[in-house]
């Protein structure tokens, strides 16, 4: 944390443009995440949310604009490099190691982050640093009780938590949560929200989500994208009260 300049935003996106042929999927997006912020990105289908996330993680290259991480320009960095620098995402479609235990899933990520993955002797179970790190993560995500279970024995809600734990194991500074509530039952939603609220306070979190109840209860700030462009950015109350947002997004949902 010492290398952070306290005045620098965690993530700063300025003047970002991306076209797929004639389709303008990102138009002059400016977005700033302060360290520790809980920010939500919402918008109707096709608003360009996923494209924006893909540009932040480096899967897509923007046509113009810059992305800075604590002041460092990462616009041209590879996805792997960005992960190493602390830009980590979770996936809408959960992708885990099903026949391994929950602890092994997390241990794999920690081993990879510490470059232990080629070590052909010893065991992670005898590595106190790894075991303690796994325990701390599982504790934070309420998964300690299922540490010995194989992931395929878990319900969808708990798998979502393992997915988040895997991302946290990579020590993110900016965490992108892609639809964390997707597929989670309404019964588990309260649990998910409670755990999201316990994420480390120094991490800037950007959540892309369709579930408005989760967004309104989790986020401090909300950015609304429509047709690739930024429609509104503001606090939860400002966005809720905004008539344009009601028209294009919330109003329409209410009739569904």
């Amino acid at each position: 944390m010492s290398e952070h300049n306290a005045n620098q935003p965690a993530l700063e996106i300025t003047g970002l443009y991306k076209n797929f042929g004639a389709l303008k999927v990102t138009q002059d997006i400016n977005l700033t995440l302060q360290p520790g912020v809980r920010h939500a990105l919402i918008g109707p289908n096709g608003a360009g949310k996923t494209t924006l996330v893909n540009q932040i993680t480096g899967v897509l290259k923007p046509d113009a604009g810059t992305i800075r991480l604590f002041g460092t320009d990462i616009t041209n960095a590879t996805p792997e490099k960005r992960v190493a620098l602390g830009v980590v995402r979770t996936f809408q479609i959960i992708s885990l190691f099903l026949r391994l235990t929950v602890a092994e899933n997390i241990g794999l990520a920690i081993a990879a982050a510490q470059s232990l993955d080629a070590k052909p002797w010893g065991s992670l179970r005898d590595d106190d640093r790894v075991v303690d790190a796994v325990r701390a993560l599982l504790e934070r995500l309420d998964l300690l009780g299922v540490a010995e279970r194989k992931v395929r024995e878990l319900g969808y809600g708990q798998r979502r938590l393992v997915e988040i734990a895997l991302a946290l194991a990579l020590k993110p500074k900016v965490l992108l949560l892609d639809e964390p509530a997707a597929g989670v039952s309404s019964h588990d939603l309260g649990m998910l929200l409670e755990i999201l609220n316990r994420l480390p306070s120094d991490i800037a979190v950007l959540v892309i989500e369709h579930d408005m109840s989760l967004v309104f209860r989790f986020a401090e700030r909300i950015t609304v994208l429509v047709g690739g462009a930024l429609l509104v950015e503001g606090s939860v109350d400002e966005v809720r009260a905004d008539q344009r947002v009601r028209d294009v997004y919330l109003g329409r949902r209410a009739y569904v």
């Binding site: 992708s95 190691f97 099903l98 026949r99 092994e104 794999l108 990879a112 052909p120």
Partner: peptide
């Protein structure tokens, strides 16, 4: 039993995710 062995099982389970972990 080694971290390499666990990594190998991880690749068997989900090679795409393993690559995304930087392996």
């Amino acid at each position: 039993n080694s971290p390499f062995g666990l990594t190998i099982r991880g690749i068997r389970e989900n090679p795409v995710r393993m690559r995304l972990l930087g392996v």
